[in-house]
Simulated scan of single mutants.
Amino acid sequence: MRAPIAEGSGYAWFANRGIGRPVPESLADGIAWLRAWLDRVAPAGRPIVLAGFSGGATFAGGVVLDDPARFAGLATLYATLPFDAGVPTTPGRLTGVPVLVAQGDADAVIPVELQARTWQYLHGDSGAQLTARRSPGGHGLTRDDVDTLAAWLTDRTG
């Protein structure tokens, strides 16, 4: 799915205050937009897994944090969760939610402190059913990442 906000030569899910730092009002508008679309095409009760890379993963994380019970899982790849952007990141917020997180040790795009905060939250306070993967590479999917994501999605969707 293409993000709705035209930005430069591409598209974005939210306005930001810097990489990985969504403007709260913009993130809330995007979440409302996606939720309205989902309500039309996939009524509640249908399992939905959100997956994204970079900004798309930050957005997907915000959507799931906003209403964790609505989703069957979250795959956040080479991104940060949208901390300090109006969605709850309280302890236990993702209890029971399957989450796949992948990060690269040499990722020079997502700020290091946001990568660390995401990793720590998901491994600790979130309560998520976590599958975690670190690679030595930078800000890009590897074949191993794709294979891990495919296996993880298969486990979620049968």
Rank of each mutant, 00 (worst) to 15 (best):
A128L: 08
L114Q: 10
P136H: 11
F71E: 04
L50G: 00
L65W: 02
D105N: 11
A57N: 04
F53V: 14
L114A: 03
G92S: 11
G92M: 08
A151H: 15
V87T: 02
D39T: 09
R40Q: 13
A102C: 14
T118W: 06
D67F: 13
A42N: 06
Y78D: 07
V41S: 12
D145L: 06
H123I: 08
T148R: 13
V97K: 10
A51G: 05
R117N: 01
G73A: 01
R46W: 08
T58S: 09
L65T: 01
L122Q: 04
A36M: 09
G52F: 09
G127C: 02
V101T: 14
I31R: 06
V41T: 13
P68F: 00
A75F: 03
D105W: 12
R117G: 06
L65R: 04
P68Q: 00
A32M: 10
F59S: 04
A116Q: 15
W37Y: 15
P91C: 10
A44G: 15
P82V: 00
Y121S: 02
A42M: 11
L34C: 08
V64Q: 01
I110R: 01
G92P: 03
A102R: 08
H139Q: 13
P91L: 07
Y121N: 04
D145Y: 09
A57F: 02
D66F: 03
I110T: 13
V101E: 13
P47G: 07
G138Q: 14
T142A: 07
D66G: 08
V64D: 04
I110N: 01
P91K: 03
P47C: 10
R133H: 14
T76V: 15
V41N: 14
R70F: 06
T90G: 11
V109G: 05
L38R: 04
Q115I: 14
W119R: 10
R46S: 11
S54M: 07
L100R: 08
A79P: 03
P88Y: 06
S54N: 06
S126I: 03
L130G: 01
P68S: 04
L34A: 08
V41R: 12
V99D: 01
A75V: 09
A79S: 14
T80G: 08
P68H: 04
L74D: 00
A44F: 07
H139V: 05
V63T: 01
A79N: 06
G104W: 09
T142C: 12
A57T: 05
P136S: 07
G52Y: 00
Y78S: 11
A116M: 12
T131A: 07
R133Q: 11
P111K: 05
P88H: 03
L77W: 00
A150H: 15
E113H: 10
L100C: 10
G96W: 09
A60M: 09
R134N: 12
L122G: 07
D107K: 06
G96M: 07
L122M: 05
Y121G: 02
T142S: 13
G137S: 12
T89V: 13
A42W: 11
T95Y: 10
